[in-house]
């Protein structure tokens, strides 16, 4: 009787080992992340967005000041329509205003691109680190553009990834 039970247990054990080996060798560990959600929750993105807003606001203040000077000059010209010096100064300041405005717009564009590159580079690196650390075979990125048409919600690791990349960015991991 005991021999039969023993044999049965060994058989069960062999089945179990076979299933485990099959699972380990042939089952791929996969998950997906909601990219816009992760991107918007990334602390670095929030920080740089704030920094960008401050820079943009500072430049806007400079332009507002130049614009105010132009309006003051325009008022003076209205009072002294024949004052050629005032007209020349107005032209000069108007040129400066438009040049500065164009330069600031270009600088804002460059800064925005630079920050986006930094954010995406660090975010991608940390997701890669997460994947390696947790032995994933594949992490898909869902960006709402049809790249990922369907996935079980259980495979959504956006919250875990967000937590991890924020800790990594802050130097806590």
């Amino acid at each position: 009787m005991t021999k039969t039970i023993g044999l049965l247990l060994v058989i069960v054990l062999l089945i179990f080992i076979s299933l485990f080996t099959y699972h380990s060798l042939f089952t791929k560990k996969m998950a997906y992340v909601d990219i816009p959600k992760v991107f918007n929750s990334f602390e670095m993105k929030k920080e740089l967005q704030e920094k960008y807003k401050q820079t943009e606001a500072g430049r806007k203040r400079v332009l507002d000041s130049l614009s105010f000077n132009l309006q003051t000059l325009a008022k003076k010209i209205n009072e002294n329509k024949n004052d050629k010096n005032l007209i020349a100064e107005f032209d000069s300041q108007r040129d400066m205003f438009f040049k500065t405005k164009k330069r600031f717009e270009e600088d804002n564009e460059v800064l925005s691109r630079q920050y986006d590159k930094q954010i995406l580079e660090q975010m991608s690196q940390y997701i890669l680190d997460y994947g390696k650390q947790n032995r994933y075979d594949l992490i898909l990125g869902a960006d709402g553009n049809g790249t990922l048409m369907y996935a079980n919600e259980e495979m959504n690791i956006s919250d875990l990834i967000t937590n991890y990349i924020n800790n990594k960015y802050k130097g806590l991991e």
Partner: peptide
């Protein structure tokens, strides 16, 4: 899936 992040840190 899911037993990761802080618990593995």
């Amino acid at each position: 899936v899911g037993d990761t992040s802080l618990s593995n840190s």
